[in-house]
């Protein structure tokens, strides 16, 4: 009952996924350090961060694969650790390493998914794989890395889940497959109103599909805002002098020998600030925050 109420609240408030003070430690290593995060329903959120930032850990906690040491998450209003099957019913998941059964063919995977997940749309997944030219009768262990990733995506999308948690779904895909995947994702959101949380190293890949950006670094949320805001509220300079009203975020090596600094410029900083400096690209925003997260600048955020 409590979880139903939670789900209702989540729907009413339009929150698909929420983390409150979420912490995860592995021995002495802190993978997530009391993070707070809200993923609005119907959004596509890019979860970006360097290796070991805790992206996979966050997604695994949402899948009830890991138990948090502190705080909690709610997926569509349900705590996955307490009500696993209820929480997972509405989640489609792609693990970071493609999971395929050796000895089963592609169609067997879809049959397996249908037998395990009552709402699985095998036809939809089949159609998608056909479009990609992946033979349904091919043994899954003979698929290329990218094809195996596509199979994983097809299964996740076939669940027609309201929340998709995709752990680096693009990592093994060729440029064309990436574009196509982004298109499919956009379609899925339009037709099913799904919410997507998608981890990636490379923000430019997902820029087109995403409307929110979360940057994780060393287990902390360094930035969590709409993509548009991330673009507009940051400026880049090659000098140490700040743009008017700018707050330094981090500095990193630019092309050549220049050292670039990313500045956060509040919206009320005035026109002068915008004119005086280069607007930062999304990639540069991410680089600036990653540099800050790693502590390579004198300035720490949060």
């Amino acid at each position: 009952m409590a979880t139903d109420a939670g789900a209702l609240v989540a729907r009413a408030t339009g929150v698909a996924l929420q983390a409150h003070g979420l912490s995860k430690r592995f021995g002495k290593k802190t993978a997530l350090d009391a993070i707070d995060l809200t993923v609005p329903a119907g959004s596509v959120t890019a979860l970006v961060g360097p290796n070991g930032a805790g992206k996979t850990t966050l997604i695994r906690i949402c899948m009830a694969f890991e138990r948090p040491n502190g705080g909690r998450v709610e997926v569509d209003g349900v705590d996955p650790w307490k009500h696993r099957s209820e929480a997972l019913r509405g989640v489609g998941y792609v693990p970071q390493t493609p999971a395929v059964y050796r000895g089963l063919d592609v169609d067997d995977h879809l049959a397996m998914a249908r037998s395990l997940h009552s709402g699985f749309d095998a036809e939809y997944a089949r159609k998608r794989l056909n479009q990609l030219g992946i033979p349904l009768d091919q043994r899954a262990d003979t698929l290329s890395g990218g094809q195996a990733a596509q199979l994983g995506l097809a299964i996740a999308l076939g669940t027609r889940a309201k929340v998709l948690l995709l752990d680096e779904p693009l990592a093994n895909l060729d440029p064309l497959a990436r574009r196509e995947f982004i298109q499919v994702l956009i379609d899925a959101i339009r037709s099913d109103g799904s919410t997507v949380l998608l981890s990636s190293h490379i923000v430019t890949d997902v820029e087109e599909a995403c409307d929110r950006l979360v940057i994780l670094g060393a287990g902390k949320v360094l930035l969590d805002c709409p993509l548009e805001e991330a673009r507009q509220a940051h400026k880049l300079t090659d000098s140490k002098s700040p743009p008017p009203g700018g707050i330094a975020v981090g500095s990193f090596a630019g092309k050549g020998l220049t050292r670039l600094t990313l500045w956060r410029v509040p919206a009320d900083a005035g026109e002068g600030a915008a004119a005086a400096t280069e607007p930062a690209s999304l990639e540069e925003v991410v680089l600036g925050y990653l540099a800050a997260g790693r502590g390579t600048t004198g300035l720490q955020l949060n």
Partner: peptide, 21 residues
């Protein structure tokens, strides 16, 4: 061992049902 548990467990939801099957 083969890393397929995350897939089947995410699809099945209730793991005990998966194993019972």
């Amino acid at each position: 061992e083969q890393g397929t548990a995350p897939l089947s467990w995410s699809l099945a939801g209730a793991r005990w049902k998966w194993l019972a099957g």
